[in-house]
Design a protein around this nucleic acid. Structure first.
Lengths: 338, 338
DNA sequence: CTGAAAGCGCTTACAG
DNA sequence: CTGAAAGCGCTTACAG
């Protein structure tokens, strides 16, 4: 007695579509799964019925029989969550979510509680997801390497220690990132170059510093002016001050994050030190911290990285062979700080 | 022949647990669902078997029979996604994800593609999720109000236009937010007060401006110094400049976001205008933009808002009665900008 | 309190 | 190419 064609109450199921299209459930299923063994006429009839009924397949039923959840988890350890304010993570997640939806997979956000890490691992290994993306600077990937044989896992950061078994990683080459960002300063004629590093217990922090050291060494310059930050603007300000106190002839700084670069830039402005005339500056990551301070920076293609992480994971899920390391390219974005 | 007790291959199912515990599948199911009609002995036996086998219930099977996905979606329209860099969204999402996981529900991130909005709505109404959280300043909630009878939906922002049917909203009272942030300036003795608004096609922008107007009117002050921004730091800098050009006697500014406040603060510093001596400043949202510039600001308890959105949605999902509007309290955080 | 049976909505061999 | 049947792993009345 409803005016709506699809009736009220329960949503239409395969059986309803089959009845309307005048075929069997098997045929409807074949059309939906894209099987080639169906006549054009049947395909057309089924498609029409699906459209008329506004039919959407039940994921639970499909998952049950296929033993696939069509869901992937994005695991964000709680400590990283504190750093959620870092645009970097938001951008990776956005890139991953956007791409996942285009593949028919669903992205579940899983914040790993430090109080109860077993809960997260149980969720992951309990067949709720087909694979997991792990984003973290700190958490030991060894924990996940262990679930890895049971569940495909892709990391967004290279592990600090080699894991066993080895894990799949998608990331930029942070040594290259540090090298190129430092080279720019050298090519601009700077001779007394310092660096504000990220935390030196993170792969990104360590590798970018290594890149810095290689670049200055290659140019025959000193690599002694190193101050550590924690990727936040405030730490950049403080490190900039320390650097200047250590050597007043400093004429260039490579900051290992745009946030720290912006903190350094703020300090320089407050002290009336003109950029780039008296001090050249480069940083890492192209976000509004870099943009608003006009800092020449390395674009890490972070959203793309999120998408590639999804692709890599899905390849693994489908049993395809994937190299252990996928490197995301990086680019120099020139602004007015050099 | 495996040394592991849980064998290899397929994960243990209900049947395996039942066999090990020496009871029927029905009894195991009752223990898992928390039915009271089970003897203590049976409960103990089943729990032991579950622990020994490391059994995790299959969500797909449960969803299929219960017609519940135990999943809720966080819908982020693409336009909002551009603003993903705004710590505000990250914080809401984090709060929601953390709380959802503690309730046994799974949070799926759904980025609404502008190219194909039907896809998102189809996913939502196709029985894939039990409810949806919608976060957006711009998107017309009317679109979602329409799916609302079929699917519980909770909004993080009040709709600009009344919708039909009315939708559930969880948000701070932005009029109060604007009022209080302006009052602080008045109480500090400022007489010539301007405001940098958010976009005036958003509820937050409109309501915070309304709060500003009420406060200055109540104090018998003028409410003419209004410049619009878009919540970003850059727009705050530009608006601050326009305000100063319009009236050089300006002695206080209420910025409707911490990002804009920080942009304004940057401008003031560059011009050598001391804060708070020559210019007092307040803003909205307590994040590192406010903290790093020492701005007195309104704490919107954003992570808590995410959690409350989840609670509200789950109440709706469970058929409980929920008020249409849930107001999150806000607090003043005093720093040195006033 | 407990168990056997039916069924949730799909997919997948198996015949034809 | 197509359909009837079995089964994925649970939960839920229904008897007992």
């Amino acid at each position: 007695m409803s005016t709506q064609p699809d009736g009220d109450g329960a949503p239409p199921n395969l059986f309803a579509v089959a009845a309307r299209a005048g075929v069997s459930k098997s045929t409807v299923s074949r059309v939906i799964t894209g099987s080639p063994h169906v006549t054009k006429e049947s395909v057309a009839a089924v498609r029409a019925a699906i459209a008329e009924l506004n039919y959407v397949p039940n994921r639970a039923a499909r998952s049950l029989v296929q033993r696939k959840s069509h869901t992937i988890a994005m695991v964000i350890p709680e400590r990283t969550a504190e750093f959620f304010a870092d645009p970097y993570f938001a951008e990776v997640i956005q890139g991953a979510a956007l791409h996942a939806s285009s593949t028919g997979y669903t992205l579940t956000l899983l914040i790993e509680s430090e109080a109860n890490p077993d809960k997260t691992r149980q969720f992951l290994t309990g067949g709720n997801v087909d694979g997991a993306l792990v984003l973290s600077h700190h958490t030991s990937p060894q924990n996940y390497a262990e679930v890895s044989p049971a569940l495909p896992v892709v990391f967004g950061v290279r592990p600090l220690q080699p894991t066993s078994p080895a894990v799949h990683v998608v990331d930029v080459d942070n040594v290259e990132v540090g090298f190129r960002a430092t080279r720019v300063l050298i090519e601009a004629g700077r001779r007394r170059i310092g660096t504000i590093t990220g935390p030196l217990d993170t792969a990104a922090g360590i590798d970018r510093l290594e890149g810095f050291h290689r670049a200055v060494a290659q140019a025959g310059l000193g690599g002694d002016l190193v101050e550590q930050g924690d990727f936040t603007p405030g730490s950049g300000t403080a490190a900039m001050q320390r650097l200047l106190e250590r050597d007043s002839t400093l004429d260039a700084v490579f900051a290992a994050s745009a946030q720290m670069g912006s903190g350094a830039s703020t300090y320089l402005r407050d002290r009336g030190i003109p950029v780039p005339q008296a001090m050249a500056l480069t940083s890492v990551d192209d976000n509004f911290f870099a943009a608003s301070q006009f800092i020449t920076t390395m674009d890490l293609h972070t959203a793309e990285k999120g998408a590639v992480m999804v692709d890599t994971l899905l390849a693994l899920v489908q049993g395809r062979d994937v190299p252990l390391i996928t490197t995301i390219h990086c680019d120099l974005v020139e602004r007015s700080s050099v």
